[in-house]
């Protein structure tokens, strides 16, 4: 195991975060605060409670997930796409590092950033609404698993993308709508029966449901199903990344 290489990639990526602090941390926190103002205050005044939890408090896990999902994908996809774009990928490919170590460095850094961001957003939420986390270990587990899984997904997008447009396409056109429709701001049970069935095809529903359960013990689907779906997506992403490196797809000619 080339720990020095993993450390070098990880530190390099984390250094980029500190260099772009405004974009990496401040911007998502400001966006989330605005969500609280718009959804929590404006809409929350009309929807007082959801399943016994005040609306402002209810949306906290969904808002954290929204940021964690999009930032995991953005951080990881940009992290690997940028060396491809500027050509410095040659150094990674010619170094004595295994595929696993490359992924560990890039995905580890992207997931770390997302986890830090998720915790900052959680702390920010605490300024707006009273927070109580009933199962902090499960909350952390969901946060870490989601960050890692979607960082892996972002890594795949970064490898696949051959332009900045494609890099933005998946997060903007697929992930954000799925998150909004995945119960970030409402319970699936509030939808008509037919739409509840449709919603179950949205993988983000399971992530938000499990994450919300760790806060308030209320969920749209059972905890085991949420965890199972999260782990399934993790395995799928790992399989695709393994194939990418084995085949050299978009990395090696």
């Amino acid at each position: 195991m080339n720990f020095e290489a993993v450390k070098a990639i990880y530190r390099f990526e984390m250094a980029r975060t500190w260099r772009t602090l405004l974009q990496s941390i401040v911007s998502p926190v400001v966006s989330t605060s605005l969500y609280f103002v718009v959804f929590g205050a404006a809409i929350g005044s009309r929807i007082t409670e959801v399943e016994g939890v005040s609306y402002g408090t209810f949306i906290v896990p969904g808002l954290v997930m929204l940021s964690v999902l999009t930032q995991s994908i953005t951080n990881a996809s940009f992290g690997i796409y940028f060396p491809k774009f500027i050509g410095t990928i040659y150094e990674i490919l010619s170094a004595p590092v295994s595929y696993f170590e490359i992924v560990l460095g890039y995905v580890g850094a992207a997931a770390t950033k997302s986890i830090i961001l998720g915790l900052i957003i959680l702390a920010t939420a605490g300024l707006f609404v009273p927070l109580h986390i009933q199962h902090p270990v499960w909350m952390l587990l969901f946060l870490v698993l989601t960050s890692v899984t979607f960082s892996l997904f972002g890594f795949i997008i970064g490898i696949w993308a051959d332009g900045f447009e494609k890099l933005q396409m998946i997060p903007m056109l697929i992930i954000t709508p799925l998150t909004f429709l995945g119960g970030s701001f409402y319970s699936i049970g509030m939808l008509p029966q037919s739409w509840q069935t449709v919603a179950l095809f949205n993988p983000v529903v399971y992530l938000i449901s499990g994450f919300r359960w760790s806060f308030y013990e209320i969920a749209d689907v059972s905890l085991s199903v949420s965890m199972g779906m999260t782990l399934s997506f993790l395995v799928i992403c790992m399989t695709v990344v393994w194939w990418i490196f084995k085949s050299g797809y978009r990395l090696k000619s």
């Binding site: 020095e4 290489a5 450390k7 990639i9 530190r11 500027i86 150094e91 170094a95 590092v97």
Partner: peptide
């Protein structure tokens, strides 16, 4: 092996010291 490629591929916003140190770490040293 050390490789100096034909094109000038560099991380524009890194310092000289940081980028050279990064390369050393990447090669496991």
């Amino acid at each position: 092996i050390g490789l100096v490629p034909q094109e000038l591929h560099t991380d524009a916003f890194e310092t000289v010291w940081a980028t050279v140190s990064f390369s050393r770490g990447l090669f496991g040293k």
